[in-house]
């Protein structure tokens, strides 16, 4: 379980995350939705210790993210951000093998190669494992990073807008993949999403943020409702039920 108590983050005069208290249950997919500037990504970065807290406390399975040693936390919590621009030139296999780093600290142990092979196979990257990352398409590169995160073999995975820059096919595949990973490996996945319909379709739990605070949270049935969405996004969103799932229509 991820427990956030009175977390605050200030950039200059703006309070980006304003006294957030939240429990993210273990197992399954929790989506964080909300308008631009609601503090979603900042909150996720705070859990991932990429951004320091100005107040409050965040624990993952009881481990305080501010004080726990890097490798200890990295064996429990993996992060994938969108801006994976990098200057290094690596093969897919090299990148995926870095996922073992928290476990081996640069001294590869016998089981590592198996982990890497399994992660590559899980994402259909075995054929491409000898290719350099800059020789791949955007979707393939993204899968390589996902394979690295899976290879890290953590109970918790944090994803910051993983669907950006993906076409519909890849976006749907990415969400399916994380749902399968939750089912197959019992992972807890926290995703910052812009598309409420992906959140509605795939989440077990949705957290809506607005103005740096938690606006509301609950199951997709509780959150994907016209009055709730209206209050979160300040716009009329019509909600339809299609095949037992809720879809928000906001194209008018």
């Amino acid at each position: 379980m991820i427990e956030i108590r009175n977390a605050r983050k200030r950039y200059g005069d703006a309070l980006v995350v304003d006294d957030v208290t939240l429990r993210i249950p273990a197992r399954g997919i929790t989506s964080i939705i909300g308008p631009n500037g609601a503090g979603k990504s900042t909150l996720l970065s705070m859990i991932a210790r990429l951004v320091g807290l100005d107040g409050g406390r965040i624990t993952v399975d009881g481990l305080d993210v501010a004080t726990t040693a890097g490798p200890v936390l990295a064996r429990r919590l993996a992060v994938l951000r969108q801006d994976n621009h990098m200057t290094a030139r690596l093969t897919v296999r090299d990148l995926v093998a870095f996922g073992r780093y928290p476990h081996s600290r640069g001294r590869p142990v016998p089981g590592d190669a198996d982990h890497v092979d399994r992660a590559l196979a899980y994402l259909n990257l075995t054929e491409l494992s000898g290719r350099f990352l800059d020789e791949l398409s955007g979707g393939q590169r993204q899968r390589a990073f996902v394979a690295m995160v899976l290879c890290q073999d953590t109970d918790y995975v944090l994803l910051d807008e993983p669907l950006n820059n993906l076409d519909m096919r890849h976006a749907a595949a990415m969400m399916r993949l994380w749902r399968d990973a939750c089912r197959d490996f019992g992972k807890t996945v926290v995703i910052v999403l812009h598309d409420i319909n992906f959140a509605s379709w795939h989440s077990d739990h949705i957290v809506a943020m607005r103005d740096g605070r938690i606006h509301s949270q609950g199951t997709p049935e509780e959150i994907i409702r016209e009055p709730v969405l209206q209050a979160i996004y300040d716009m009329a969103i019509s909600v339809q039920e299609i095949g037992g799932r809720r879809v928000g229509l906001f194209y008018e």
Binding site: A48, R49, L50, A69, G70, P71, V72, L73, A74, R75, A78, V79, L80, R81, D83, N84, H85, M86, T87, A88, L90, D94, L95, F98, G99, Y101, P102, R105, G106, R107, Q152
Partner: peptide, 21 residues
């Protein structure tokens, strides 16, 4: 030396992999 390759992946990835950045 074991963390050099990880550092070249950038700050976010390095911290995610548990490097004391």
């Amino acid at each position: 030396g074991h963390c050099f390759d990880i550092l070249s992946l950038g700050r976010a990835t390095a911290i995610g992999l548990g490097v004391d950045y």
